[in-house]
């Protein structure tokens, strides 16, 4: 899923302080699971903003709403009849949701309430870790199911580099060396011969380097 993290409240206040009618808009998908932008976080943030502006003696209308998804036309339509009641929307969705909402409601200012971080997994309660960089050409079949692009600090395709120490990465002792994990798993799978194949230079054109990407599936188009 997409992992996001809350923006500092000071930064949010700075961005919303000039709007008198604000809708704090959550999303019920990834950002709910990673506890950055779901219904619960919308409530907490809206309350904090109300308290802040009351203390400053400012009267503001701050409403709450959480949509099933902000990356979907259908669900975004649910706020069409109320959008004119607000001077701005503070969206706690990922960058995709914020942009989709902005595209849909062209004349309403959109402010992001979270920082979108990466594609990752729930490692443990309160800890999420990166697993995928969406390079558009998956190589996991060759690397024992462990991705060196997202998990190696140098994206080394033929690793480990000289900084791998006791299973950890040179840049951070808390970070696993992806290539140690790859070798361990290839060994356990009885496929260490794969390690002796030099991985060819990667075609990055399917990655962001190739420009903004589009997937078109004619088989599912209506």
């Amino acid at each position: 899923m997409i992992i996001a993290d809350k923006k500092p409240i000071e930064e949010i206040i700075q961005e919303v302080k000039d709007y008198d009618r604000l809708l704090v808009l959550g999303c019920n998908e990834c950002v709910t699971v990673c506890e950055a932008g779901g219904k619960k976080e919308v409530e907490v943030l809206a309350s904090a903003l109300r308290m802040h502006f009351i203390k400053e003696g400012k009267e503001k209308k701050i409403d709450e709403r959480t949509l099933e998804r902000q990356c979907d036309h259908e669900y975004l339509e649910e706020i069409r009849d109320v959008i004119d009641q607000y001077d701005a929307v503070l969206s706690l969705a990922c960058g995709v949701g914020v942009q989709f909402t902005a595209e849909k409601y062209h004349s309403t200012p959109l402010i992001p309430g979270v920082n979108t971080c990466f594609l990752g997994a729930n490692e443990q309660r309160g800890m999420w870790t990166e697993r995928c960089q969406a390079c558009g050409a998956c190589i996991l079949a060759r690397t024992g199911g462990i991705c060196p692009i997202s998990r190696c600090a140098k994206r080394v395709m033929n690793g480990p580099c000289g900084g791998s120490s006791a299973g950890k990465c040179e840049i951070n002792k808390d970070l696993d060396c992806a290539w140690q994990l790859i070798i361990d798993r290839l060994r356990d799978l009885g496929r260490l011969d794969d390690y002796e194949i030099v991985a060819p230079i990667k075609d990055w054109s399917t990655e962001r380097s190739g420009g903004p990407r589009t997937v078109v599936r004619e088989d599912v188009q209506v």
Partner: peptide, 8 residues
């Protein structure tokens, strides 16, 4: 950058 690695 790391477009390619040292081996490549």
């Amino acid at each position: 950058v790391h477009d390619i690695d040292s081996m490549q």
